[in-house]
């Protein structure tokens, strides 16, 4: 029959043919949403509890230190920036471990990633943006207490010229630290999609390994074999950070001091680990997104 025909009636839907924002603003809005979600902003009240509890616990001692400096006139901070961070490394690590699954696991586990990737954003760019949100969140987490120390210290009368370079160097190291931590925890969360499992795995990789490295370094400094201690330090982002902080005078303390070219090796290791993690994270997103 030839008169069997169909027609789609115009019931008023209109296509959008106005100006479109480019990839840049797409990435930007994904990045900002991710950063907000890392702190539970824009999500339920319950999911704000953990990040802000950890942030509070991480900043409170800095406030106390500033208070002490104000009342008793120290010439310098009793705990300087990088040393302070290594004191609260448990909190920073917990924050990274607990919030990485929030940004990474969900989309992969519920396969809603496919919906995101149906938009004009490549899997690689998506993964890198997720990593950037997480890294920025971790950076904010570490910057807040060090900023409290810095500003509070200056207000309490510490010398501006003395403190500023140390603070800036510590800030630079925090960028490296946050990049590496976000890479490692993000990768683990992309692999272990159950939240609890991912958190424990991150803790094992970051805290337990850091503990082992620390014990080995203590033994090495006791036995006076610095090379093994320096080598062991390569295996944890925290000892990388602490080692560099001492070498470059960012207000750190470390068990093992770095000699000769070791600082360069440390920095290079951090960059390699970071690059490898991000590359693997991208690979994982590409793989899951194309299934």
């Amino acid at each position: 029959m030839s008169d069997r025909s169909g027609v789609i009636h115009d019931i008023g839907y209109r296509g959008y043919d106005g100006p479109r924002e480019g990839t840049r603003s797409l990435v930007l809005s994904l990045y900002v949403t991710g950063l907000r979600h890392a702190f539970g902003l824009g999500r339920s009240g319950r999911s704000k509890v953990l990040p802000f509890l950890l942030l509070g616990l991480g900043t409170l001692p800095a406030v106390i230190v500033v208070g002490v400096v104000t009342f008793i006139n120290f010439g310098s901070l009793p705990v300087s920036y990088a040393a302070y961070l290594s004191q609260i490394q448990m909190l920073v690590t917990l924050f990274a471990a607990a919030q990485a699954p929030v940004l990474v696991s969900r989309d992969l586990r519920h396969r809603s990633i496919v919906l995101y990737l149906a938009r004009p954003l490549s899997p690689a760019l998506f993964a890198v943006t997720r990593w950037a949100s997480l890294a920025s969140a971790i950076l904010l987490f570490t910057v807040l207490p060090t900023l409290v120390l810095y500003v509070g210290g200056l207000l309490a009368g510490l010398d501006f010229g003395d403190e500023t370079p140390i603070f800036l160097r510590s800030l630079a190291l925090q960028v490296v630290l946050a990049a590496v931590l976000a890479g490692i925890t993000g990768l683990i969360s992309a692999w272990a999609l159950r939240r609890g499992f991912a958190v424990v795995a991150s803790i094992v990789v970051l805290i337990v390994v850091a503990g082992v490295v620390r014990i080995i370094q203590e033994i090495c400094s006791y036995e006076d074999i610095s090379t093994v201690g320096e080598l062991a330090g390569l295996f944890s982002p925290w000892t990388l950070h602490n080692g560099l902080a001492v070498a470059w005078d960012a207000g750190g303390r470390a068990v093992v001091e770095l000699h000769d070219a070791w600082p360069v090796v440390y920095l290079a290791t951090a960059l390699v680990v970071w690059a490898a993690c991000v590359a693997l994270l991208v690979r994982r997103f590409v793989k899951v997104g194309s299934r």
């Binding site: 953990l50 616990l57 448990m90 917990l94 607990a98 609890g196 958190v199 424990v200 803790i203």
Partner: peptide, 17 residues
């Protein structure tokens, strides 16, 4: 549902720090 994180906080922060 956040038993793992709460447990870790207990062990690492409370018992540890």
């Amino acid at each position: 549902r956040h038993a793992v994180v709460v447990g870790l906080i207990f062990v690492l922060i409370w018992e540890g720090l």
